[in-house]
């Protein structure tokens, strides 16, 4: 059991018992190993189901805008990226800060489940972790692997592991990573020619089945009707046409400009293992370079696309 699990359960019980919040959004163990399901604990008994592990890769802030009926506060367990998306929700007036009771969780990174699954020919039957060591078992073999080597790629370059906003913490804050070149992957694509770039993204999206799991897992995607579901006007074709697939991915990325926290929920949810962060990463790099902006760090700051400054970069205007 992860050392955070017991602490989370006790904190959640305390929060629910004392009425600090009406519910606590967290994770429970899924039906198969390495699956963690989002879970809402509404009473102390529920809180026994809460868990924590390096497989809790989805972003819980995604579930906040959907909660309509709640008289009291909503409790939520938030790792660094979740907390930044909570800040984004507050900044975008999706939810009041006063409505939330945030249990901050200093994160040490989530693991890349698809990469671990590649180590095995058969199904994984057991997953546990001891500190930095992951113990993964199948019917035929057991692997002890170093968690650092199997981190998700967004966790490898994460510089905000600690929650940026919280009412209480699960543990002491962890040391933040110092990343020499945060956008090495984006720079690699930038160095390509137009044709190479086009082919790169052709290859990237060729397996897309238009399931929209990336959109559904994303806390930024909360429009009541998404542009892909609209039929009048129909902004983008619904079939498997490669241009329609790409248009969906481009437009989804644009909607995340200046808002994406690089939480990796989109890639975590993708059943076809498409690295959709390749689209949003470019926008994150531009936000940082052009506007010195990283999303969701401060509830008092307005995002760059919602403010005008006389010195905003405008060299693209002819």
């Amino acid at each position: 059991m992860h050392t955070y699990t017991e602490k989370i359960q006790n904190l959640a019980k305390d929060v629910l018992k004392q009425g600090k919040a009406e519910m606590v959004i967290g994770f429970k163990q899924g039906t198969i190993p390495m699956a963690a399901n989002p879970f809402v604990a509404k009473n102390e008994n529920d809180a026994d189901n809460l868990i924590w592990s390096s497989t809790c890769g989805l972003n819980l802030a995604n579930y906040l805008p959907g909660i309509k009926k709640c008289e009291g506060k909503i409790g939520i367990i938030a790792k660094g990226c979740d907390s930044r998306n909570i800040v984004t929700h507050i900044v975008e007036n999706k939810i009041d800060r006063e409505k939330l009771y945030i249990i901050g969780l200093p994160c040490t990174g989530m693991v890349d489940k698809k990469q671990i699954a590649l180590l095995f020919d058969d199904e994984i039957t057991q997953f546990s972790e001891e500190g930095n060591t992951l113990i993964v078992k199948s019917e035929t073999k057991e692997e002890k692997i170093n968690k650092q080597e199997y981190l998700r790629s967004n966790c490898k370059t994460c510089t905000h592991r600690n929650p940026v906003i919280y009412d209480e913490l699960v543990s002491d804050l962890v040391e933040e990573q110092i990343i020499e070149d945060q956008f090495a992957d984006v720079k690699k694509i930038e160095a390509m020619s137009s044709e190479e770039k086009w082919d790169f993204f052709d290859k990237l999206t060729e397996d897309c089945i238009r399931c929209y799991a990336c959109r559904n897992a994303c806390p930024l995607c909360y429009c009541p009707t998404c542009f892909v579901d609209e039929s009048g006007p129909q902004w983008v074709g619904k079939g498997q046409n490669t241009d329609d697939i790409k248009t969906f991915h481009y437009l989804r990325a644009y909607h995340c400009a200046g808002r994406c926290t690089d939480c990796g929920a989109c890639e975590e949810a993708c059943p076809m293992d498409i690295k959709v962060r390749n689209f949003t990463r470019k926008l994150n790099k531009d936000s940082l370079e052009l506007f010195n902006w990283e999303a969701g760090l401060d509830i008092s700051q307005r995002p760059p696309l919602d403010t005008y400054q006389p010195d905003d970069p405008d060299d693209f205007i002819m």
Binding site: E190, S194, E196, K282, D286, F316
Partner: peptide, 20 residues
């Protein structure tokens, strides 16, 4: 906006922005 279009392989010279 132009930056991402360029990033995904649309030639930079094809997309222009102006204020008139």
């Amino acid at each position: 906006m132009g930056n991402l279009l360029e990033h995904v392989g649309i030639e930079k010279e094809r997309v222009h922005f102006s204020w008139i």
